[in-house]
Write a protein that binds this DNA or RNA. Structure first.
Lengths: 321, 321
DNA sequence: TGAATTTAAGTAAGTTGTTACGTAAACTAA
DNA sequence: TTAGTTTACGTAACAACTTACTTAAATTCA
């Protein structure tokens, strides 16, 4: 019995079930002691009928929080034992209105005082915990309804992944990863130009030795994202080649890379940070905007890439918390 | 759904059941999302096996807090799906030791991180309520185990009856009740002597007009107990004829009557209170002792009843809170 | 008005337990 | 050693639901 007590949510689930069974059983026992040989699960039906005259199957089910077949089956049983009967609703022939028989009323009358006693006993039990139990159950019900366990786990997982991401500088041993990530990205959205191949295959000579930077996102030993700051003739840096591996997208890793790149830029003597992108890459544009980049017309001296149709620049002192 | 929320303990029972079902379903959902098509109810078994190598059916059942047929059935299913296998215990041929297959271990490994995430999620959920939920459940479990619902209801009922008892003085209209109660009592323990009949039939002339008192215990309009203080030649009062109707015994009504009688005696000028009883009426003797009566030898002037073999007297200033 | 949809309720079959009972191995005590 | 008891486990039957499906009446809407 003990090993399971700390077995997480499932343990809690079966504990609730146990407790529920215990309560039903003890109620059965109580009623049996009063000479009433009827399962306690039937009583809510009788109780509701005693105060409502007639109720249809479906609305009874709704009141009890059960499915209609459950009520249908239970009512059939109760009917065969003579506690209730049914009649068709004259205004809606589909409906079967349930009502107590005289014996049913007699039974309810007999049980009324027991119900009152039971109510008091329960209140005393709950009083011990300052009614905290009821509140806590309601809270758990609400929380699980608001966001399912699965959603919670997935969110937590995402969070964990995000937390485990490190942003590091390029190292020779990650050259292949840098190529792979960029190729994946270009294959997906555009196509690989020969110039791309040249740059991606020789990142050290083509980017770093020209005064640029390459940042990588690492989880454990896996490289799962990259970004580059490239230096051209001007005194400005270009942010480019931001890409994140397919399975890790949507976790905010791109943002992390971009922020790291901005920090890197701010630590240098370069006097401007710009990027070129494409209007169809909406999520990326949103991110750039969020980070402070603003659209500008293409400067005259820049020869636009074939795939670039938007130019953005980070204003001086742009926010980047 | 709402009408049942305040339907007492049964409502609480089905609420627990609901909550338990919700949890199981959400767990199923979570595992399914991970590509594991196995009901969440199976996992505790796998989890336990993954840390214990082999476990017998019965001890597994005990650990899970379920019956052994449940484990037997579940394990058969899991075995047919290839997650576990069994072998006979060589030291006890009755026992079937369950263990994980390689696939089973693989599955557990795969799920390990999910379990950890789930654990965290649950802890966060419970944190909201300051872990009050767990404490409150444990409290309810303990309380219901300590004293069942039935016992609680019966105790409360007893209490209610006791509270509703009034002790009143004799009135003419209750003469029959006085006779009935005493006759019942005498019939049960001894026999009705002709002298008894004389006294019981004419309580006013035989008891009250001689300076004595008759007290009655009344619930609503029912007289369910009686006691008499009779005055003989001496300056003492005799406490006698304490009797309580069969269905109301054990509720402390006799004590209430006796205390009222002592109070009545103390309000008079009589200078002694004694009683005669029989050694076989042990509960009554205990009560008398509790109220302060102490055994004395029969005084010379008193002619003992046939059925009296013990004489008790209330010392001056005897306790009677 | 006639077709499509919604609603009320029943039936069948499945799930996840339970209790009740039977069997055989292991233990215990005269 | 034998007889009685306990223990481990399986099977069958049942309980109290559920889901999935069907039927038929009522309602809606084009």
């Amino acid at each position: 019995m003990h090993s399971i007590e700390n077995a997480g949510l499932l343990g809690l689930g079966s504990r609730f079930k146990k407790l529920s069974e215990l309560i039903f059983k003890q109620c059965d026992d109580l009623y049996r002691a009063r000479g009433v040989n009827l399962q306690s699960r039937c009583f809510p039906i009788l109780q509701l009928l005693s105060t409502h005259e007639t109720i249809s199957v479906t609305s009874l089910a709704e009141m009890l929080g059960q499915t209609h077949p459950a009520v249908s089956q239970m009512s059939k049983k109760l009917e065969s034992q003579g506690w209730l009967y049914h009649e068709a609703d004259s205004s809606d022939e589909r409906r079967r209105l349930l009502a107590l028989t005289p014996q049913g009323y007699e039974l309810v009358d007999k049980l009324q005082p027991v119900w009152r006693l039971q109510e008091t006993v329960m209140n005393r039990l709950l009083e011990i915990s300052g009614y905290g139990l009821l509140e806590n159950i309601a809270l758990l019900e609400r929380e699980l309804e608001k966001q399912s366990l699965r959603e919670r786990v997935e969110e937590l997982e995402k969070q964990n992944k995000q937390d485990r991401v490190e942003i590091i500088h390029f190292e020779k041993r990650y050259a292949k990863d840098f190529y792979r990530l960029n190729k994946e990205w270009l294959d997906k959205y555009f196509y690989l130009e020969s110039m791309d191949h040249e740059v991606l295959s020789n990142p050290e000579s083509q980017i770093i030795e020209k005064g640029g930077f390459i940042l990588l996102a690492r989880i454990g030993e896996d490289i799962i994202g990259a970004a580059a700051l490239t230096s051209n003739q001007s005194n400005q840096l270009e942010l480019s080649k931001i890409c994140v591996e397919a399975g890790y997208q949507g976790l905010g890793i791109g943002e992390k890379l971009a922020r790291a790149a901005i920090n890197q830029y701010q630590a240098t003597d370069f006097s401007g940070l710009y990027l070129e992108s494409n209007r169809k890459l909406l999520p990326a544009l949103n991110l750039y905007f969020k980070l402070g980049f603003r659209e500008k017309p293409f400067p005259a001296q820049i020869v636009p890439h074939a795939r670039a149709d938007i130019y953005m620049e980070l204003p001086e002192q742009a926010s980047s918390r």
